[in-house]
């Protein structure tokens, strides 16, 4: 769980996850094209995200594809969110998003 929080505690890595959330299953090259980061920086961030299991990787032929893996985030959420709160929290989060617009957080 420490690894997940450490991995998420960086705006660059959160942007990387945002890119995968928008378009899942990208190669390193595709990710670099849309991010203002060096290839080395993206590679380093991906390694950390993979170690935290927030990014899953599969090979298709010679292509290494990166996927956003939300399973660890669900595990963390479940630890502190009770079963009855879930629906109300979803409604509150939707309202906040509507009023404020999407933000990087």
């Amino acid at each position: 769980m420490d690894k997940v929080f450490r991995a998420l505690a960086d705006p660059g890595r959160r942007r990387l996850l945002d890119r995968l959330h928008a378009d899942n299953g990208q190669t390193l090259g595709e990710l670099c094209r849309h991010l203002k980061m060096s290839r080395q920086a993206v590679t380093k961030h991906l390694k950390l995200l993979e170690a935290a299991n927030l990014v899953a990787v599969i090979w298709r032929g010679r292509e290494k594809l990166h996927y956003l893996n939300p399973v660890p985030i669900v595990e963390i959420a479940d630890r502190w969110i009770g079963k009855y709160e879930r629906g109300r929290l979803r409604a509150l989060a939707d309202l906040k998003k509507q009023l404020e617009g999407e933000t990087d957080g």
Partner: peptide
């Protein structure tokens, strides 16, 4: 994208 795919990983 030519196809639709999700990949999930969990360590148990």
């Amino acid at each position: 994208m030519a196809n639709s795919r999700f990949v999930y990983v969990t360590y148990i």
